[in-house]
């Protein structure tokens, strides 16, 4: 179907998207790189002189950076573990015969559609509040001291909130994958004398691996840039106990008006994301072939 005529038309049709995305990639990123080498603070309207790698130096040697980096990793890994393990269990549960499966599915998927600011605030106020929250009441019933989640375990609390948002995603994708498993494969294994447990280990699990990888990689992209949940709950605190890299860059550039430092941080975030992205692209590229 590929005639020359259609090729020319095709090129014309692709160009707007390509050009726009190219500009979107190149221009701001170029500017970020440029700013990251300048001594540029909005509060100091002096000349923006070139200072080489000093911004990077400041950003990376700032003890807050290490904290933020560790927080980012803990946040990403914590949520990943909870959501994938929980997601597999949930998918297996939802795949079994039951009454009202459709409704349960709808209930489970709902949190994914809740905007991050709403879920964070609902959890913060109505559940985690040490006085009026539901948890405080439950603790009281159990005779445990009330616990101020966001003050005493801020990162943990944020992990809980974000996991609640992403668990449905993992569950839904894994359930879809599970349901796409050819039932004849399972039946064949059954005819071959495999027990329910071996069927799970040798057929279901390998079938799910690809989807689990996809879940992990896609979530990672989003989790690396968690922002709103922190912004409306802890504001990175107490101190910088719940500051991750995006939040640190935000506060550097928009709260302290340090354009140069924020830009250097931005570039570091881009590099981190790219390391993750390389894996993801390989994965999806493979699937494109399949």
């Amino acid at each position: 179907m590929a005639t020359q005529h259609s090729r020319a038309a095709a090129r014309l049709m692709i160009s707007p998207a390509v050009i726009l995305l190219f500009l979107w990639m190149a221009v701001p990123l170029g500017m970020t790189i440029y700013f990251s080498f300048l001594n540029y603070n909005l509060l100091i309207p002096s000349a923006h002189n070139f200072i080489g790698l000093q911004n990077y130096d400041f950003f990376v040697t700032d003890p807050a950076f290490v904290t933020a980096l560790v927080n980012t990793l803990v946040l990403v890994l914590g949520v990943l573990v909870i959501t994938t393990v929980g997601g597999v269990l949930m998918a297996l549960l939802l795949d079994r015969p039951m009454w009202g499966q459709g409704i349960v599915r709808i209930l489970v998927i709902a949190p994914f559609f809740v905007m991050p600011t709403v879920s964070a605030l609902v959890w913060k106020n109505m559940f985690m509040n040490p006085v009026n929250g539901i948890f405080a009441w439950v603790f009281h019933l159990l005779g445990i001291q009330p616990f101020d989640f966001l003050a005493q375990a801020p990162l943990f609390s944020i992990i809980m909130i974000v996991s609640w948002e992403w668990l449905p995603f993992a569950a839904l994708i894994l359930l879809t994958a599970l349901q796409s498993l050819d039932s004849e494969q399972i039946e064949a294994a059954e005819m071959d004398g495999a027990s329910a447990f071996s069927r799970f280990i040798y057929i279901t699990v390998p079938h799910l691996t690809r989807s689990i990888t996809v879940v992990i990689l896609i979530q990672t992209i989003f989790l690396l840039s968690i922002f709103a949940e922190i912004y409306v709950t802890t504001n990175g605190g107490p101190g910088n106990a719940s500051t991750n890299i995006p939040f640190m860059i935000y506060s550097q550039s928009l709260l302290q008006f340090d354009v140069g430092g924020g830009s250097a941080g931005g570039i570091i975030a881009v590099i981190l994301a790219n390391i993750v992205a390389i894996f993801l692209m390989r994965m999806i590229g493979k699937n494109l072939e399949a």
């Binding site: 700013f35 995006p246 994301a273 992205a277 999806i284 494109l288």
Partner: peptide
């Protein structure tokens, strides 16, 4: 295929990476 993968890669650029210039 390359174009598609490249488009996807733009999605992976973290927003904070361009926050400053976009804001300005």
């Amino acid at each position: 295929k390359d174009v598609l993968m490249w488009m996807l890669s733009t999605k992976m650029m973290p927003a904070v990476g361009v926050l400053v210039p976009i804001y300005l």
